[in-house]
Nucleic acid binder design. Structure first.
Lengths: 186, 186
DNA sequence: GTCTATAGAGTGATAGAC
DNA sequence: GTCTATCACTCTATAGAC
């Protein structure tokens, strides 16, 4: 038995979905073992630090995904408006039009926040900074840009809460369209 | 020995803070016992249905608070604008300027949502409907009013996520001011 | 033999229910 | 307080690639 069936990298997305669904405390090793189809031995082989290390790895991967797909487009695209449009497209796809929640948002609301405070803060700070920088390039003042960026990033998190609460994905897409329209006009 | 130290009604607000802080699964009986200064026996005397009944009682009380303070002001004040202003004041006070999270929002994001789906849905639906009705009375079309109400209620939830993530209460109050300004002008 | 990925019995602690 | 189930985690034992 036992040759390479999975690698650490392959396990992280599965862990992400489990932490998303159950939070940090609710993600029991039984659920993780079931969700990854891995025995405890394999799990602790990949993550000797236990659940803490698993969550760190997941947050790290979320960070990297947003950095590559969202933040870099906002910061580096020659046309800032195009970068902002790309952000909304990527975010809508990433959150499956509201059916998937934001792991960092879930952690921010729970007592997990204290344990992962730096990562949670940095994730949102990086997003707000990147969006604000793009908005400055569209002609906003830094003050306007910062306030708008916070409103939009917060609005996206709220849209996730609301669409899940009402169980209507169109609430998520409607709010995202409204937010996008506010950034691209005036 | 054993005289009435607490009543069921007195326990509910304490339970609310525990569920807020730890979520449904994270609110262990040990934490509940410690937070309420009640033995397990007393807890099960008040809530024979266990944690499920405790959470239902808490959600019920949250519903009633919002109905009395927020929804009724929105629906019944002669001056709809005044009702909207009162909503923002009450909400800002209720959430302690962002330091306290929304219990229903926390439940909406977690797998608790399925267990309490009706209550979670009804809470947000009632809020959105009451705000939209007030906005119609300020001269908006029903379509505008509904979209704006969803954006604002979602925006408040997002402001809670963001202010906790960044650990800055002024993010919450800033976003609420922006949302309020959007409703009271144009 | 060594190394890595696997499975899972077994640990004490703690869970919720009563 | 007592119950059983489950918790996170440890440890031993395996199989196959070098």
């Amino acid at each position: 038995m036992a040759r390479v069936i999975a690698e650490r990298e392959d396990v992280i997305p599965m862990l992400a979905e489990i932490f998303r669904a159950y939070g940090f405390e609710g993600a029991s090793l039984a659920r993780i073992s079931e969700g990854t189809k891995l025995g405890k031995g394999s799990i602790y082989h990949f993550f000797p630090g236990g659940k803490e290390e698993m969550a760190q790895a997941v947050l790290e991967q979320v960070d990297q995904w947003f950095k590559q797909h969202v933040f870099d487009a906002l910061l580096e695209r020659a046309d800032a408006m195009e970068g902002i449009k790309a952000m909304f497209d990527d975010v809508s796809r990433y959150f499956l039009s509201g059916r998937r929640v934001c792991l960092v948002g879930v952690f921010a609301l729970g007592n997990e926040r204290d344990r992962f405070a730096n990562r949670v803060r940095d994730y949102f700070a990086a997003w707000i900074d990147a969006l604000a920088a793009a908005l400055v390039r569209t002609g906003r003042t830094p003050q306007e840009a910062s306030a708008l960026a916070k409103e939009v990033v917060g609005g996206i998190q709220g849209a996730l809460v609301l669409s899940r609460a009402l169980d209507q994905t169109d609430v998520f897409t409607d709010i995202l369209h409204t937010l996008q329209a506010r950034l691209l006009t005036s």
